[in-house]
Nucleic acid binder design. Sequence first.
DNA 1: ATGGCTCGTCAAACGAGA
Length: 260
Amino acid sequence: MKIATFNINGIKARIAALSDWLAEARPDVALLQEIKSVDEGFPREHFEDMGYRVETHGQKGFNGVAILSRLPLEDVARGLPGDDSDEQARWIEATVIGDAGAVRVCGLYLPNGNPVPGPKFDYKLAWMARMEAHARALLATEMPVVLAGDYNVIPQDEDAARPEAWRDDALARPESRAAFRRILNLGFTEAIRARTQAPGLYSFWDYQAGAWERNNGIRIDHLLLSPQAADLMQDAGIEAAVRGRDKPSDHVPVWVDLAA
DNA sequence: ATGGCTCGTCAAACGAGA
């Protein structure tokens, strides 16, 4: 079961680029962030015609997450538990029925948190505390669980081409990194880092200042595997070349392949 | 880089992103 995360930066602007990548990479599950669309505005039929079931959790203008799946889905849930007053569409999860077993898959769009300090940074840290509590509950099910998405966290300095430029940014602040490690330390395995410790692996390059051409990137899109999911991992990768195509998102797909 | 581009908005600048 190949599971990918991809922050597409607007579904309407990315139909072609996303469709091309789906057709060539053929992930079983694609977790999308920043669809920037309400549910009724998502081009559902286009992706159904490509063989994908479509589940969305959208909102007007910003944020929004979705699951595309070639495999059956059960028990779809929308919204991160822990704060009924939170209106932002940043979490969707479902159970994917694979040929060799079921996997609970969560797609997340973690808040950016800039500027620091301020209410947006407070919201980011509160959101991460809620995610930690929910991740603990998911681990207790003892199912294979995958937490995949745009974390807006640069875990370590080697995950940025210019770490000094991010030192005071919400993506690299010690509080953000500590909150990320708290989730990881519940018992999750980060898919890419289970495969390689190499520096220079990025999943985002800014549209500005020739960031892609200069390879001035950061690694902020991650897949965290529960112990039961990590035991099934076959491979993982980052599709960096997608950033160099026509009308690209500023993020690229990151994926894991599980024996499930 | 105190923001050089891109997206969505309900139609022109502006907020948000990272």
